[in-house]
Amino acid sequence: MLFFRLAMMLAGLLLGYSAGRVLAVSGAPETATLNTVSLMLAGMLTALLLAPRAEKSVGRFYAGGKGWYERLSPTTVAAATFGLIVALLVSVLLGSLLRALPIYSWLLSVIITVVLAAFFMTFAIRNADAFGALAFPQVRRKPGGKILDSNVIIDGRLVDLVRAGFIEGELIVPAFILRELQTLSDNADPQKRTRGKRGLTVLEQLREVRAIRIEDWDDPHLPTTDDKLIRLARETGAKLLTNDGNLRKVAKLHDLTVLSLHEAAVALKPQVQAGDNLTITITKSGQQSGQGVGYLEDGTMVVVEDGLKFRGKPTRVTVVNNVQTNVGRMIFAKLDREEVVA
């Protein structure tokens, strides 16, 4: 930051000049000019040496302040401003009443104003939903509303869930999500273009089943779509409906309610218990010698002991163990007595 270093050098020059003028009062007049120039140069060089360290400290402070500013909610700022206005009005009224007292002074007036400001601003921020709505009436809190992101729209399963009545409340599609789908549908990449067109088609199908509200809200200061979704959810009190695992984790850190279709699908998978019989087709070998691997219709991996010899054939197996891992469920099985199903 060249400007910052130049400012530091200018500050060093000014400090050196001030110190030189102070010494000129008590020192010899014939050396006053030389002393002043020397102190100015010393101050400038000292500032130049300290500039890199100061630049790092200022950079960290700036980054922290920027992050704090980006996390600020508009309703919180509006509520704090409202609380400060009330505090100033009340302090003026109290000042008029206390002016006749012998103990009254400007210092007492300042203390009263600071105490009132701290009280009313804190109270207003804690109730930002009510006070912030005075400045932002367009941001409405509708309990039960669900904000859709692009992933869950493109997924397509939402239409069937809404049609079956499992998704209640108002469905909200932010305008920036709609623009993102439109941009994808116009993309030169065939895969992205297909995803974008599928998302727009899903929205058309969804509108036939349930009314959709397009939220004409955006914040150009937020860099990513995920940041905008989190901010909008905080402002409206709505729930986030997504399949994005990273977005879900970040939203949870902001104390937001997140609904994941992927987690719901995993929870609804049929549970297989030890001793149950399954019929699967061995498609490949396992990690150990003789092991065969097949898959259920929902994609669950089934590892069959000594099942490789039946590769490519429908095989009846008995479940031995059912293990839940980070990547999903795994079923360990052994060959049934009947072995191959005709």
Rank of each mutant, 00 (worst) to 15 (best):
V86Q: 15
L88V: 14
L89Q: 13
V90S: 05
S91Y: 03
S91R: 03
S91Q: 07
V92F: 10
V92C: 06
L93R: 10
L93M: 14
L93W: 10
L93H: 02
R99T: 08
R99N: 12
R99C: 06
R99Y: 08
A100G: 14
L101S: 05
L101M: 06
L101R: 08
P102W: 13
I103S: 09
I103C: 05
Y104D: 06
S105I: 05
S105V: 06
S105R: 13
S105F: 06
W106I: 10
L107H: 02
L107C: 01
L108A: 05
L108E: 02
S109I: 04
S109T: 07
I111G: 04
T113F: 11
V115D: 00
V115P: 03
L116Y: 03
F119A: 14
F119T: 12
F120M: 13
T122N: 15
F123D: 12
A124Y: 04
I125E: 09
N127L: 11
A128R: 14
D129S: 12
D129P: 00
D129T: 08
D129C: 01
A130R: 09
A130P: 08
G132A: 12
A133M: 13
A133N: 07
L134K: 02
L134R: 03
A135F: 12
Q138T: 07
V139K: 02
V139N: 11
R141V: 08
R141N: 11
R141P: 00
P143M: 11
G144I: 09
G144H: 04
K146T: 09
K146H: 01
I147C: 04
I147D: 09
L148C: 07
L148F: 04
D149V: 09
D149K: 09
S150E: 03
S150V: 09
N151G: 13
I153P: 03
I154C: 00
I154A: 02
D155E: 14
D155M: 03
D155I: 06
G156A: 12
G156W: 13
G156S: 12
G156E: 10
G156P: 10
G156L: 11
R157P: 05
R157Y: 00
D160S: 01
D160P: 00
L161E: 12
L161G: 03
V162S: 08
R163V: 02
R163F: 00
A164Q: 12
I167S: 01
E168F: 02
G169E: 00
V173K: 03
A175D: 10
A175C: 04
F176C: 02
I177T: 07
L178A: 13
L178W: 11
R179G: 02
E180M: 01
E180T: 01
Q182S: 08
Q182N: 10
T183Y: 03
S185D: 06
S185F: 03
S185E: 06
S185M: 06
S185V: 08
D186G: 10
N187R: 07
N187D: 14
N187C: 03
A188C: 11
A188D: 15
D189W: 05
P190I: 01
Q191R: 15
K192Y: 02
R193W: 12
R193K: 15
G196E: 02
